[in-house]
Lab assay of single mutants.
Amino acid sequence: RRRVRAILPYTKVPDTDEISFLKGDMFIVHNELEDGWMWVTNLRTDEQGLIVEDLVEEVGR
């Protein structure tokens, strides 16, 4: 599965499916959606939700 790492921290918008995360958090990407959004699991918190791909970088497989 594709893995990405947060290059900046992010605080979710209330009442959305987004998740908050810290710089350096690692994610497993489950689905890539329209407009640059991805459905992921945060490996640090085990939380699932939406993040925007502009805030992450690819991690070598």
Rank of each mutant, 00 (worst) to 15 (best):
T41A: 04
D46F: 11
D15I: 05
I28T: 13
I7E: 04
S20R: 03
E58W: 10
E58Q: 09
G49Q: 00
E34D: 12
E53W: 08
L43P: 03
N42E: 04
W37S: 14
H30T: 07
E18P: 00
R61D: 15
G36V: 01
E53I: 11
I7K: 15
I51S: 03
P14M: 12
E53N: 12
D25P: 04
D46E: 15
T11G: 05
D54H: 07
R3P: 05
R5H: 05
E18T: 07
E47G: 04
I51F: 02
M26W: 10
L43H: 04
K12F: 00
E57N: 05
N31A: 12
W39V: 08
R61W: 15
R44G: 04
L22Y: 10
L50P: 05
E18F: 05
L33C: 11
L50S: 11
L8P: 00
H30S: 06
T41F: 01
V52C: 14
E32L: 13
G24Q: 04
D46R: 14
D15R: 08
L33F: 12
A6S: 07
D35H: 12
L33T: 12
E34I: 07
L43Y: 06
W37F: 13
E53Q: 12
T45H: 03
W39I: 06
I28R: 07
R3Y: 12
K23M: 09
G24N: 09
R61L: 15
L33R: 15
L55G: 06
D35P: 09
R5E: 09
P9C: 07
V52L: 15
E18V: 06
R44V: 04
F27E: 01
L33P: 11
G24F: 04
L8C: 11
I19W: 00
R5G: 03
K12E: 07
W37T: 15
Q48C: 12
R1N: 15
I19Y: 02
T11K: 09
R1I: 15
L22D: 12
T16E: 01
L33S: 10
G36W: 02
L55A: 15
F27Y: 02
N31Y: 11
T41W: 06
K23C: 08
I19P: 00
G36R: 08
E57D: 07
R5I: 11
I19D: 00
P9Y: 03
M38Y: 08
K23N: 07
R44K: 04
V13I: 13
E47A: 07
L33K: 15
D25V: 01
D15W: 07
V59R: 06
F27Q: 02
T11V: 14
P9A: 13
T11E: 09
T45W: 01
R2F: 08
E18H: 05
V13T: 15
D25T: 03
F21G: 01
D25M: 00
E57G: 04
T45Y: 02
P9G: 11
P14T: 10
D54N: 14
V56S: 03
A6V: 01
P9T: 10
L8T: 09
V52F: 14
V13M: 13
K23H: 06
R61P: 15
I19K: 01
R44Q: 06
I28S: 10
E34F: 07
W39A: 06
T11R: 09
W39P: 03
T16S: 12
V13P: 06
A6G: 04
T16L: 00
G60E: 14
E58V: 08
V40G: 04
D25Y: 00
G24K: 00
T11N: 13
W39C: 08
I51E: 01
T16G: 05
R5Y: 06
E58R: 08
G49M: 00
D25E: 03
R3C: 07
L22T: 09
N31W: 12
G36A: 03
M26L: 13
V56H: 01
K23V: 09
D46G: 15
V29N: 02
D15L: 07
E32S: 13
A6C: 02
I7Q: 05
E34K: 13
L22I: 14
L33H: 12
H30P: 03
V59S: 09
G49L: 02
K12S: 10
L22S: 09
S20L: 00
E34C: 09
I28F: 09
K23Y: 07
V52K: 14
N31C: 09
L43C: 14
D25F: 02
D46I: 10
T16W: 04
N31I: 07
R44S: 07
D35V: 05
D54L: 06
D35N: 13
R61H: 14
M26F: 12
D25R: 00
P9N: 10
G24I: 01
G24R: 04
E47V: 06
A6D: 00
R61Y: 10
S20K: 02
T11A: 12
T45P: 00
I7A: 04
D54F: 07
I7Y: 06
L22G: 07
V56A: 05
V4I: 08
G36P: 04
D35C: 08
V52P: 15
D15K: 08
K12A: 13
S20V: 00
T45R: 01
V13Q: 14
N42A: 05
K23T: 11
V4P: 01
T41L: 06
F21L: 03
G36S: 05
T41I: 04
G49Y: 01
D54P: 08
Y10A: 04
V56K: 03
N42V: 00
I7H: 06
Q48K: 14
F27C: 05
G60S: 11
D46V: 12
A6Q: 01
V4A: 05
G36F: 00
I7F: 07
V13E: 14
L8S: 13
G49F: 03
T11Y: 07
I28Q: 12
R1A: 09
W37P: 03
V52R: 15
I28H: 11
I51N: 03
V13D: 12
G36H: 08
D15G: 13
E32D: 13
N42M: 04
R44M: 06
R5P: 01
S20F: 01
V29D: 03
V4E: 01
D35Y: 07
R44I: 03
R2A: 05
V52S: 14
E57H: 07
D17N: 12
L43F: 05
V40Q: 00
E18C: 06
T41N: 04
N31M: 12
V13R: 15
E47L: 05
I19Q: 00
G36I: 01
Y10M: 04
T16Y: 00
D17Q: 13
N42I: 01
V40M: 03
L50E: 05
L50R: 15
R3T: 09
G49I: 01
F21Q: 03
